[in-house]
Design a protein around this nucleic acid. Structure first.
Length: 270
DNA sequence: CGCTGACCCTGACGGC
DNA sequence: TGCCGTCAGGGTCAGC
């Protein structure tokens, strides 16, 4: 479900309701996520106050003075605010219950997400080694150019490598490469610096635009405020295989790159 | 080190 | 109607 814009949309929807709140309880119904929810996490969290809600890559970090709860939504996860009266549904794996009437409820049918603890002053292994945020100044064409030298793999895989830059998943990799006019299967190491400058700009543009639209709703994605995202109608490539290119009218081609469906225009992307 | 493919899991959908 | 294969926005890990 979520790439960076969807996670950021979730953060913005949820933060105002939990920021500054005290945790009354962590209620775990199903601990078997991508990694098990630590058995001692409820005890650690109880009584802690949320001091900030941050996003790093596709992780949400709920900071407290003792450390941070690290939540990943995986492929199918979502977080939403519910009222105490609302009964838990299938795949509602845990609740963070706050003082007042606020409950943050996590749902994830495929259980590819996680809920882990990062003690204060430590960097969780999952966050160590991540590349820069794509919307930060630390990400630009020069970085893509330098990090790609000597790499024979396709530029799309390179762009989706979280060690290079975080937050770019399958949707936005397809979109950014379309906007940049670069074929997804081109070897990353054989792309010029000038073209990487363009690509970096397109990554920033497509992510910024998607965040502004509240993310991309493909199936049933809703942000923390319960509203769907509206970016889907602006997609040029993703999900449009076989349809006419919005720029030149030629039929969009489909292929597979590292097990992920890839869509591109043979005329507009070189 | 870079790259590929298997794997984690459930649910939806299309073809037969 | 039901069964089966395929696919889905995530990522790790082993092996070459």
């Amino acid at each position: 479900m979520p790439e960076l814009p969807e996670v950021e949309t979730t953060r913005r929807g949820v933060a105002p309701h939990v920021d500054g709140r005290k945790v009354r309880a962590l209620l775990v119904r199903e601990h078997r996520l991508r990694w098990p929810i630590p058995g001692d996490l409820p005890a650690i969290l109880e009584g802690q106050r949320i001091t900030a809600v941050e996003r790093r890559a596709k992780y949400l970090l709920f900071h407290t003075s003792r450390g941070s709860v690290l939540v990943h939504l995986g492929m199918s996860g979502s977080l939403r605010l519910v009222s105490p009266a609302e009964p838990a549904a299938f795949h509602d794996h845990f609740d963070i219950v706050f003082t007042g009437d606020t409950i943050l409820r996590y749902n994830d049918p495929r259980r590819f997400g996680c809920c882990l603890w990062q003690p204060a002053g430590e960097v969780h292994p999952l966050l160590a080694g991540l590349g820069p945020e794509p919307l930060s100044e630390g990400f630009d064409g020069g970085l893509l150019y330098h990090r790609s030298r000597g790499r024979r793999g396709p530029v799309k895989s390179f762009l989706m490598d979280q060690k290079i830059v975080v937050g770019v998943g399958n949707i936005y990799a397809n979109e950014a490469l379309f906007l940049a006019g670069i074929r997804p299967d081109r070897a990353a190491g054989r792309i010029s610096r000038a073209r990487y400058e363009v690509l970096a700009g397109c990554v920033k543009q497509v992510l910024t635009s998607a965040i502004d639209q509240g993310g991309t709703t493909l199936r049933d994605f809703v942000g923390g405020d319960g509203k769907p995202g509206y970016f889907a109608q602006q997609l040029y490539a993703y999900g449009r295989e076989g349809l006419p290119c919005k720029q030149c009218g030629k039929k969009l081609q489909e292929s597979r790159i590292s097990q992920r469906t890839t869509v591109y225009c043979v005329a507009c992307q070189r």
